[in-house]
Amino acid sequence: KVMEIKLIKGPKGLGFSIAGGVGNQHIPGDNSIYVTKIIEGGAAHKDGRLQIGDKILAVNSVGLEDVMHEDAVAALKNTYDVVYLKVAKP
């Protein structure tokens, strides 16, 4: 199931950690970017929809399929206060 989640960045950013990407696979044979941690009190935690194990398909208009881990981190960092995440639920 794919959904779009709109998050408003807090003082600590979006409030979640990711793993995965080309050269840094979270699941062997899979280059996808996965949510590995939700920080308590952060934007994602308060919103409640993003969960550990969700796959991040895109940030705003930037696709995160088959990208390097660093590029995924940069895509999440290089955002304004309002961030749209395209997410696939497991």
Rank of each mutant, 00 (worst) to 15 (best):
M3D: 05
V82C: 12
H45N: 13
H26N: 03
V2D: 14
Y84F: 12
K89W: 04
D66G: 13
T36K: 11
L64D: 01
I39K: 15
D47S: 07
V2I: 15
V83A: 12
N78G: 14
R49F: 05
L7N: 02
V83T: 13
D66K: 12
I52K: 15
D66T: 12
P90L: 08
I27T: 12
G48W: 01
F16S: 01
G48F: 02
A74D: 15
I33V: 08
A88L: 09
N24S: 08
T36F: 04
N24A: 11
L14K: 01
M3V: 05
G23F: 05
N78M: 11
I56M: 05
V67M: 15
V87M: 04
I39W: 08
D81A: 11
I38W: 01
A74T: 11
G53V: 01
K77L: 08
G48E: 07
I56V: 14
A43M: 08
I27D: 09
A58F: 12
H26L: 07
V59K: 00
L50P: 01
D54E: 02
F16R: 01
L50F: 02
G21C: 02
S61A: 14
V67T: 11
G63E: 15
T36N: 15
M68P: 10
G41Y: 12
E4P: 04
N24D: 15
K37M: 14
N31M: 03
D30Y: 04
V62L: 14
I56Q: 00
G10V: 05
A72R: 01
K12S: 08
K46W: 08
A88E: 15
Q51F: 05
A88V: 08
A19E: 09
K77G: 10
I52S: 13
P90T: 08
D30N: 07
T79N: 13
Y34V: 07
T36L: 07
V22E: 04
K12G: 08
G15N: 01
V35K: 02
I27F: 15
D81R: 10
L57M: 14
E40Y: 09
V82P: 09
I27C: 08
V22P: 04
I38N: 01
G23T: 09
T36A: 12
I38L: 12
K9N: 12
R49P: 01
E70W: 07
K6H: 07
N31G: 03
V82A: 11
G13M: 04
H26Q: 05
K1N: 03
A74M: 12
A58R: 15
N60Q: 05
E4T: 12
G13T: 04
A74E: 10
P11Y: 08
K6S: 09
I33N: 01
I8G: 07
A58I: 04
D71R: 13
K1P: 02
V67S: 11
D54M: 15
V73D: 13
K46C: 12
D54W: 08
M68G: 14
R49S: 14
K9D: 04
G15R: 02
N24I: 06
G63D: 13
L7Q: 02
E40S: 12
S17A: 14
V22T: 09
E4C: 06
A58E: 13
L76K: 01
S32H: 09
V59C: 14
G23Q: 06
L50M: 11
G23D: 07
D30W: 02
I8L: 12
I5A: 01
V2W: 04
E40L: 08
D30G: 03
K77W: 07
T36P: 00
I52H: 09
G10A: 11
S61D: 09
I18G: 01
D54A: 05
K46Y: 11
Q51I: 05
A19G: 15
K6Q: 09
I33R: 01
P28C: 08
K77I: 13
S17K: 13
I5P: 00
I33K: 02
